[in-house]
Amino acid sequence: MEGGPTHFYDEIEPFCRWRRTENIDILELHLPSGLKKEHLKIHINNNGILTITGTCPVDQTESMRFKKETKVAKNCRINEIRAKFSKGVLYVTMPRTSPIATGPSVALKGVISQTLDPKADDNMTNVAKCASEFHNKFGSLKQRLCRKTVVEGVAALVVVAAALVGVVKAYQYCMASPV
C-alpha cells in the first residue's frame, strides 16, 4: 500500500465541573497534560450551544481529541463570555443578567393604592413588603432549581408551593382580622 501512515484519534472525555453563583456560571474543563491553548477551539452557535473542542498530537500516528457541548443559560450575556486556560484547566466564564423582579409584589401594589383605610394601607404595605421579599427569595430559589435533577426539582417545587400557600393564608388572615 502506498501513502502515509494511518493516523489514529483517541477520543477522551475530560472531567467537567460547574461552579455557579447568582451572577455567573463557570465551566471548568480539566484537560490532559500536553494539551495547549493552541489546541483548543471554543464556539457558540445561534441556538445558544457552546462547543469546546480540542485536538493534541500524541506522536506521529496518534492524537487525542475531545468535544464538549453545553447549552448556555437563557439569561447569559453571550458577548461577555470569556475563557482562560491555566495549568491544564480551561475556565469558561459566562456572566448572567439579573432576574427581573415581577410577580406578587406588582399585583399587591395595585391593591394598596385602592384601599381607603390608613390602617389597612399599613397592613397592605407590610403584606406587600413580605410578598416582595418572598418573591425575591423565590426567584433566587427558582434559578437554583433549574440546575437540579428532576427529583430534586419536584421536591423543592413542593416546598415552594407550600410556602406560597402559607403566604396566601397569612395575607387572607391579615385581611380578615379586625382593624
Score class of each variant (00 low, 15 high):
residue 39 H to M: 06
residue 163 A to I: 02
residue 114 Q to C: 02
residue 33 S to L: 10
residue 139 G to C: 14
residue 79 N to F: 07
residue 102 T to R: 13
residue 58 V to T: 09
residue 41 K to G: 00
residue 8 F to I: 00
residue 147 R to G: 05
residue 141 L to F: 10
residue 25 D to C: 09
residue 8 F to L: 08
residue 175 M to C: 13
residue 115 T to Y: 04
residue 155 A to S: 06
residue 124 M to P: 07
residue 177 S to A: 11
residue 36 K to Y: 11
residue 20 R to N: 08
residue 38 E to R: 12
residue 155 A to K: 15
residue 86 S to K: 10
residue 43 H to G: 06
residue 4 G to F: 07
residue 147 R to I: 06
residue 17 R to S: 14
residue 152 E to V: 02
residue 179 V to A: 09
residue 97 T to Q: 08
residue 104 P to A: 12
residue 56 C to G: 02
residue 94 M to K: 10
residue 140 S to L: 13
residue 103 G to Q: 05
residue 24 I to R: 07
residue 120 A to S: 08
residue 154 V to T: 10
residue 136 N to I: 12
residue 120 A to P: 07
residue 116 L to C: 07
residue 132 S to D: 13
residue 88 G to D: 01
residue 50 L to Y: 02
residue 179 V to G: 15
residue 8 F to Q: 03
residue 10 D to T: 05
residue 23 N to T: 09
residue 73 A to P: 15
residue 88 G to F: 13
residue 18 W to V: 04
residue 178 P to E: 09
residue 1 M to D: 03
residue 124 M to F: 15
residue 154 V to H: 03
residue 133 E to S: 07
residue 157 L to G: 13
residue 26 I to R: 13
residue 28 E to K: 02
residue 66 F to C: 00
residue 79 N to L: 09
residue 77 R to T: 08
residue 74 K to N: 06
residue 141 L to R: 15
residue 147 R to T: 10
residue 12 I to V: 14
residue 39 H to D: 15
residue 153 G to D: 12
residue 104 P to V: 13
residue 21 T to Y: 00
residue 172 Q to C: 10
residue 141 L to Q: 15
residue 45 N to L: 00
residue 92 V to N: 09
residue 171 Y to I: 11
residue 122 D to M: 13
residue 79 N to Q: 15
residue 52 I to N: 01
residue 16 C to G: 01
residue 3 G to V: 02
residue 152 E to D: 15
residue 56 C to Q: 09
residue 113 S to A: 09
residue 88 G to E: 00
residue 159 V to T: 15
residue 43 H to E: 12
residue 31 L to N: 01
residue 37 K to W: 09
residue 163 A to C: 12
residue 18 W to R: 03
residue 86 S to G: 01
residue 78 I to T: 05
residue 94 M to W: 03
residue 29 L to A: 01
residue 151 V to W: 05
residue 94 M to R: 15
residue 109 K to L: 00
residue 42 I to P: 00
residue 145 L to T: 15
residue 47 N to L: 08
residue 26 I to S: 01
residue 133 E to V: 13
residue 154 V to C: 00
residue 71 K to W: 10
residue 163 A to H: 09
residue 86 S to D: 14
residue 172 Q to T: 07
residue 6 T to H: 06
residue 121 D to N: 14
residue 141 L to H: 04
residue 114 Q to M: 03
residue 74 K to P: 14
residue 143 Q to D: 13
residue 118 P to E: 04
residue 46 N to T: 10
residue 24 I to E: 15
residue 114 Q to Y: 01
residue 21 T to M: 01
residue 80 E to W: 04
residue 142 K to R: 14
residue 156 A to N: 13
residue 171 Y to F: 15
residue 93 T to G: 02
residue 173 Y to I: 13
residue 126 N to D: 12
residue 56 C to K: 02
residue 135 H to S: 09
residue 162 A to I: 11
residue 34 G to Q: 02
residue 4 G to M: 03
residue 154 V to D: 02
residue 148 K to E: 15
residue 138 F to C: 10
residue 63 S to N: 03
residue 175 M to K: 11
residue 1 M to G: 07
residue 138 F to L: 14
residue 78 I to M: 02
residue 174 C to Y: 12
residue 131 A to T: 00
residue 127 V to T: 00
residue 105 S to K: 07
residue 158 V to H: 04
residue 40 L to R: 06
residue 97 T to L: 04
residue 131 A to V: 00
residue 124 M to I: 01
residue 2 E to Q: 11
residue 82 R to L: 04
residue 154 V to A: 05
residue 118 P to A: 00
residue 94 M to E: 08
residue 174 C to I: 14
residue 151 V to Q: 09
